[in-house]
Amino acid sequence: MAEYQLKNQELTLKISSKGAEMKSLKDNKTNQEYLWHGDSAYWGRTSPVLFPIVGNYREKESVFEGKTYSMSQHGFARDMEFTLESQKEEEIWFELKENEETLKKYPFAFRLHLGYRLDGRSVEVLWKVENPNEKKMYFSIGGHPAFNCPLKAEEKQSDYQLSFDTDKTLVCSILGETGLLTARKKEFELTNHKMRIVEDLFDEDALIIEGNQAKRVGLVNPQGETYLEVEFDAPLFGIWSPAKKSAPFVCIEPWYGRSDKEDFSKKLEEREWGNELKAGEIFEKSYQIRVK
């Protein structure tokens, strides 16, 4: 495992080769840290990539071409060692390929390229998935960055808010105890594009917002200032902090995929919000983290 650094005049970003995971995002002038540091008392990760699934398979199993495959929540990429592909002062790329162990869990060869690019006070997170198989490949991918909230020890998270690039009521899907999508929905009315982070907001796990309801989500400090935003083209996203732990961070997660429904068939090619690539095709997406 190695650690790499990108730096410009505004920000310093540190990335680990394990999971190609962002580990630190600091303002060079104020030394303010924006990324959660990964304390296992709450949650030991900081910004894992979710691949080749987002969320959970029903009963941790998928079926493809008559064979059953088992995989744990959010897939295996976040726990694997990536290879450094290239590095410049403000851009870096990592690569992950299949091996004997991944093929036991997931029936495809793959090339996952994960990049980071600094631009002023922004970080662009870049994904590129290649299909080297001679058949169609099915997968999901997502981000899971965790941001410090509150920023200051003397502040309370319940004095912070989430902001959205919409003022419509958000309709959120709800996960059950097994990590699968239930039929229940929860609605959140926004006030001036904002929602307060009340103490019980995450008591039922992540808020899952499907169907392109928003494309930009921000964190707002007690003074009413948005200090960080995540912008994406993903059709759905999650907002999460560990249930009933009063954890001092909030995750804003752009997703191309999600957990199965409780009554799902388990067929890999039928997963909702999943993605497919024909032989030789490439999937390229990105999202941006903007520090104000």
Rank of each mutant, 00 (worst) to 15 (best):
N148G: 12
I15E: 01
H113E: 15
L11W: 06
K97C: 14
K186S: 10
K185C: 06
V220Q: 05
K292Q: 15
E276N: 12
A109T: 04
G274S: 12
D79A: 12
E284A: 14
P254Y: 00
R271D: 08
T182H: 06
S259E: 00
S70D: 07
E101F: 10
E187I: 08
L181M: 15
N221W: 11
D165E: 02
R196W: 04
A279M: 05
E187H: 14
A77V: 04
M22A: 13
V123D: 00
N131P: 07
L35Q: 08
A206Y: 03
W36F: 00
L207W: 00
S62W: 07
E130I: 07
F110I: 00
D260C: 15
G218L: 12
H37N: 15
H144C: 03
F264Q: 01
D159A: 11
L236G: 08
L219H: 06
Q87L: 09
K278A: 13
E177D: 14
Y287L: 05
V198A: 13
E210T: 15
S241A: 15
S246Q: 15
E199H: 13
R216K: 15
V220S: 06
R111F: 11
R271Q: 14
G120L: 12
G274L: 01
E21F: 02
G142A: 02
S158N: 14
M195A: 11
D159V: 09
E253N: 09
G55T: 04
M195C: 08
L114A: 02
D119N: 15
E81C: 12
Y106I: 03
E98S: 14
K168C: 01
W273P: 11
W93C: 10
F202M: 07
L181K: 13
K186M: 10
I15Y: 02
A20D: 02
E189G: 14
V54R: 00
G257K: 00
N99F: 07
P242C: 05
P107F: 02
S140W: 08
T83H: 08
E85W: 10
S62R: 05
F232K: 02
W273L: 14
Y116A: 02
P254F: 01
M71P: 12
Y256G: 11
N8G: 10
N148E: 13
L170T: 04
K97P: 07
K29E: 15
L175M: 04
S286I: 03
N131T: 01
T182G: 10
E85C: 14
G75W: 01
I141M: 07
L162K: 05
T68A: 10
G75P: 03
K168F: 04
S16K: 05
M71H: 09
E95H: 14
L103M: 09
Q87G: 08
S158Y: 10
E284V: 13
G257T: 04
S47Y: 04
W43M: 02
E270F: 04
E155G: 09
G179C: 06
H113Y: 15
F202T: 06
Q213M: 05
Q157A: 10
K215V: 03
V125G: 11
N192E: 14
V49L: 12
A41P: 00
Q288G: 03
V220D: 03
A279G: 05
E95Y: 14
V63R: 09
Q288D: 01
D205E: 09
E130M: 09
L6R: 05
K215G: 13
K215Q: 13
L114K: 13
A2H: 06
K7V: 13
E130F: 07
K266W: 07
V129Y: 06
L96A: 06
F108V: 02
F264K: 04
